[in-house]
Nucleic acid binder design. Structure first.
Lengths: 369, 369
DNA sequence: CTGAAAGCGCTAACAG
DNA sequence: CTGTTAGCGCTTTCAG
């Protein structure tokens, strides 16, 4: 499975042979003689001025003469100085680090959110420390705790599937750590949020199914505590009601855990005496899995049954038939969330929690009539 | 596009109205009366012992009595203590933070590597700070510099497309900052690496094309400085040579930049007087785009032309026809890379650069005969 | 405009 | 087994 080969010598590195690789500094490392870090003090003594002046020059304070400033900056560059962030945060109580907690980075949606967050944050010189809850409430708690300990200036979070309350977040709020939630949010927390209008988007999707002639429309949701799941279900119910279709609770199912595949639930639906002629799914991965099951039942999409997803993952475009879905602006969501957080951080006085609702796009493809 | 609504009041938050939201601690924030941080000193004075003993107990040193240790741990929990990482790193010169530089996190392969890195690192209490080069050499340099400044204990990197030398990495090495490279590596750097056997995997893929009767096999690579591109091209060339097929340089093309779509290159290939009957692509995204172009030319896959990708992204499974490809163990690659880095960090004495070669799997699907 | 001095919270000698 | 002391590198009063 895993073959190992050494580039440096023919000996197996797993044996930890004590030959040192020829690299100037390694020897130094072995005897604890690391390249000394350049400090403000070094710059100061080279220039025969005080460390405070160096600090002021480096940080662009007004009250320092242009010449000194130039000299300091020059010397800093020359010595390849880089400030010690740890020392700075010890003094300033700020780390310029933001903690991110998502269920799973490898999910397309979240990796795109992350991308937006990372790019925006780094443009403002903030770092992002990332962690994954893997859809577990206790991991979410632990990671949050770790981020507190690392003194993250603020937290960006999209809740795990298992999370149904916000007590762990309230604790951070009590410590004055700003939080911004996105996508998987909790309603009753006094923090800024970035969401899409799940209710409206779902309503629109289900309405489309109705208009194309579907009569028995099923819904596959996630854990019932989850905001997005509740909202999308509500949109679904409203569309049925408004168009005079009765709601059949048999057709509303939930996958309690994303690890536990929706395969079973779809099978059950299809085996019903009066099976659905359309399924509206909480997200694309569920819809894609549903599509596989439907194919196995030898039903034709969309003639026998229509399918709609949510998120617009790349696969939904390429799959056969291509999947009708709701596109969520993941990248923009990340960017918005982090900009809200940084605004709050840099302007705490006039902070007030706000909820930004980003637009979705309904994309009609071939999985619907 | 973006509608904003306030949850807290009807006023528009963009106006920064100075009403404060009702939250106990916000008021305190406004007057600079933050909840005071609990320190070792606090625990010490409550317990009437010295801070050093508290520190020792907290850090699991041997030389502290079980009773004291228990009392300290209990008090720490009671006061909801969390150590100040900044202060600790200032003393220990270690941050337990690892810097990650990837081209783009939103790419499926990299987000999966990240997932492996994150999970393994967090299990050993390391944090991951992430940054993206977006395939630009200068951004790669900048981010590396930022990570140095943040005093990352070590660096994990997969190079940008534009990166053709390792001078920027050598500078870090001179500062004794350990680096581990993965996937997109540079050969001549004395650091640990995690790769797959690109040469062998490509050879195997191209050999398969030959065995299924393809005679004019094209190759679409990336920037020629890139190790993976070179290796995969070499495997391709070797397969042709060994099976007595002549190499037609016209059939070997490169996309200089992943932003610049391979669309054109594929079109050119297909318009050749003697067009290819198979294309081996550097990766799945290129292969998928090639597939679109081939379809537009009304050619049948695999009858008129076979297609092979590399990476095994989810889409390659769902696309029609499904894509023959080489599966790369992204998650495991991340995990291996970070374990190598941590091993080096915690055991610098017997470090020696090693290269771990992970196995690939050739997956035959319907885009080949 | 600049310097001196203090201290952020923690750990590690060193001394008992 | 525990306490005392010093200092990591930086910023920030407070004085000039």
């Amino acid at each position: 499975m895993l073959s190992t080969s050494s580039t440096a010598s023919e000996s197996n590195p797993k044996n930890f042979v004590h030959y040192s690789f020829k690299r100037g500094s390694l020897l130094e490392t072995q005897f604890g003689m690391n390249t000394p870090e350049i400090t403000v003090k070094d710059i100061a003594s080279k220039l025969r001025i005080s460390p405070s002046t160096v600090s002021r020059a480096l940080n662009g304070h007004e009250d320092v003469s242009p010449e000194t400033k130039e000299k300091v900056l020059g010397m800093a560059r020359e010595l390849n100085y880089s400030p010690n962030i740890a020392a700075r945060s010890l003094r300033t109580h700020r780390t310029r680090t933001l903690g991110l907690v998502v269920p799973e980075v490898s999910k397309h949606f979240f990796s795109n959110v992350l991308s937006g967050i990372q790019e925006y944050a780094s443009s403002l010189n903030y770092s992002i420390v990332i962690s994954q809850s893997l859809e577990s409430f206790s991991m979410e708690q632990n990671h949050l705790q770790q981020l507190v300990s690392a003194r993250a200036d603020g937290i960006l979070i999209s809740l795990s599937n298992e999370t149904s309350h916000g007590e762990h977040l309230r604790k951070l709020l009590e410590r004055d750590i700003p939080i911004v939630m996105f996508d998987r949010v909790l309603e009753d927390l006094p923090v800024s949020k970035v969401v899409v209008d799940d209710h409206k988007a779902s309503f629109q999707a289900v309405e489309y199914l109705i208009k194309t002639g579907c009569k028995r429309i099923a819904f596959i949701g996630g854990l019932s505590g989850l905001y997005v799941s509740k909202e999308r279900e509500a949109g679904y119910r409203q569309a049925l009601t408004l168009h005079g279709l009765s709601i059949d609770e048999q057709l509303i199912v939930h996958c309690n855990n994303l690890n536990q595949s929706p395969r079973e639930e779809v099978s059950k639906l299809l085996r019903l005496p009066n099976p659905p002629d359309a399924i509206f799914c909480l997200n694309d991965p569920i819809a894609i899995e549903a599509m596989q099951v439907v194919k196995e039942f030898n039903l034709k999409i969309p003639n026998d049954i229509s399918l709609i997803g949510f998120t617009n993952e790349p696969t939904s475009y390429y799959i056969e038939p291509s999947l009708t879905t709701v596109s969520q602006p993941a990248y923009e969501m990340g960017k918005t969330a982090v900009s809200l957080l940084i605004e709050q951080l840099e302007n705490p006085k006039n902070f007030q929690p706000s909820t930004v609702v980003l637009g979705t796009r309904f994309i009609i493809r071939n999985s619907t009539r």
